[in-house]
Amino acid sequence: MKKDKLKIGIYELTGCAGCALLILDCENELVDIFQAADIQSFLMAKSDNIDGELDIALVEGSVSTEKDIEELMDIRKRAEIVVAIGLCSMVGGIQGRFCDEKEWKENFKKVYGDIEMTHTKPVQSKPIDAYIKVDYYLPGCPIGKEQFLNFFTRMLRGNPPERYPQPVCVECKYNENDCLLKKGILCLGPLTSGGCGAICINHNLPCVGCWGPVEGGNWISEYYLLKEKGFDDELIKNKMANFSGTKIAEVSEQLRK
């Protein structure tokens, strides 16, 4: 008996919309994607969207307004499996960096002054798992095409997505690149989740950390190693923070000790 197609919804909270766009960037596979699954909602691609029960919800973007919270709660209620796609929904994205509420408020004021937003109340940017249970994570800023197609086909067959337990350095070694750290260039490869194929280092440029913190990365040791190599203290901390979202709060806490 033919099984029903999986019902999938793709949702965007606050972010650059890059992860959703990346899905549209699968030009050669797009028609197949729409045929293989029942795409119930995908605001960027279609106007006949339905908010019903879902097998899988993919959520990109961080939670940055009260409306985002409401939408997210509703998605969780309707979906069997929720997948956080991209850096924003995993760790709050680049905008998740103002972890301290006071710091966030000050910066908000610097941009918007004292104006009261009438349409929806702003909240500090947070990853979606600050509000709901998340089943799987797909790292990247944005996610990659191969990564997405791999994930999509596995889900269609009822398999869980691949994990990315290795840092960028592993992929960099596969590509036989010279280590930039050894050349005196501050590269975040050792702390960053692999999966991108070490693309920046392939282009002779240092890793900026955009795939987010790798599981089990030893931030404190790395920090002291970089200090030993003579890099500026502020520069190290700043670079570590740029793409770590709210996770940087833990690291800062440990560094203070």
């Binding site: 606050t14 961080s62 409306k67 910066n107 941009v111 940017s125």
Partner: peptide, 11 residues
């Protein structure tokens, strides 16, 4: 614009 504030300039 419902998109939340990201304060990119401040970042």
């Amino acid at each position: 614009i419902n998109e939340g504030a990201r304060l990119i300039e401040r970042l």
